[in-house]
């Protein structure tokens, strides 16, 4: 038996919104420690990795590990039927899970709706992501990162990210001209959500597709801060941390011959 009850149902809506543009079908892997998902987009340029800890649910019950193969568009349609303040419970029979039951309860518990989502067999390869000591780790306000991606898309489909000790610089070059945004580290003790920090092993300069980065910023409502981790000749890691877990996006760089 699998059961996971989330008091903040809106969080599940936001999570789904941050994944569904990148991936259409995905396995939710359920175990006694929590729920996780790993999937690449069709072109294998980006990978999304989601992890939700069992402690974030109340209650959480999973007797044995199993996978829920879900069409995210279908799940999204059903999730639209949940109110933003609803408590959401996911239930499935772990021995023969051919459907996922979703229960939406409003705060006063007067209205309860129940939906069944048909599950599918998804044959997805699972990649092992190596532990990486990144050359540069940058924390910044997630809304700022979203704005930079949106702004620079006006100029080009690619962005070069340069990180030094003193600044992170985003540069775009296109047919109409060029644009760049530079951010310096700031520490605002009373407003930590607005601070920018740079941890640097060595300077790094990498080019990425703005279309994908912009897609990743759908995670913005999940966290005030976003973490960017860069290393030469490695995929960029973009992480949004939540109380209950995290969503990580990996983006393969644009590289020269």
């Amino acid at each position: 038996m699998f059961e996971a009850r989330l008091t903040q149902g809106a969080l599940l809506k936001r999570l789904l919104d941050s994944v569904k543009e990148l991936v259409t079908d995905a396995n939710f892997d359920c175990s006694e420690t929590g729920i996780s998902l790993q999937a690449m987009d069709n072109s294998h340029v980006a990978l999304v990795s989601l992890s939700l800890r069992a402690e974030g649910f109340n209650p959480y019950r999973c007797d044995r590990g199993f996978s829920l193969g879900v069409n995210l568009n279908s799940l999204n349609k059903i999730m639209k039927c949940a109110g933003n303040e609803d408590v959401i419970t996911l239930k499935a029979d772990d021995s023969s899970a051919d459907s996922l039951c979703l229960l939406f309860e409003n705060s006063s518990n007067e209205r309860v709706s129940e939906y069944e989502l048909k599950l599918m067999d998804i044959d997805q390869e699972h990649l092992s992501i190596p532990e990486t000591d990144y050359d540069a780790t940058v924390m910044m306000p997630s809304a700022e990162f979203q704005r930079i991606c949106r702004d620079l898309m006006v100029v080009s489909e690619s962005v070069t990210i340069d990180v030094s000790k003193d600044e992170i610089k985003f540069t775009a070059e296109g047919e109409l001209g060029t644009g760049n945004v530079k951010l310096k580290p700031t520490s605002t003790i009373d407003k930590p959500e607005e601070s920018i920090t740079i941890e640097l092993g060595q300077t790094v300069s990498l080019q990425f597709s703005l279309k994908y980065l912009s897609n990743f910023t759908r995670g913005t409502p999940l966290s005030d801060q976003v973490m960017l981790c860069l290393s030469d000749n490695m995929p960029l890691l973009v992480e949004y941390k939540m109380d209950i877990g995290y969503i990580r996006y990996y983006l393969a760089p644009k590289v020269g011959d």
């Binding site: 690449m40 294998h44 390869e125 699972h126 190596p130 690619s158 597709s209 393969a252 590289v255």
Partner: peptide
């Protein structure tokens, strides 16, 4: 812009 690489070039299958 430079050619796009893929995730498979960096992360291996389990």
């Amino acid at each position: 812009s430079l050619p796009q690489s893929t995730i498979d070039e960096f992360f291996s299958t389990n």
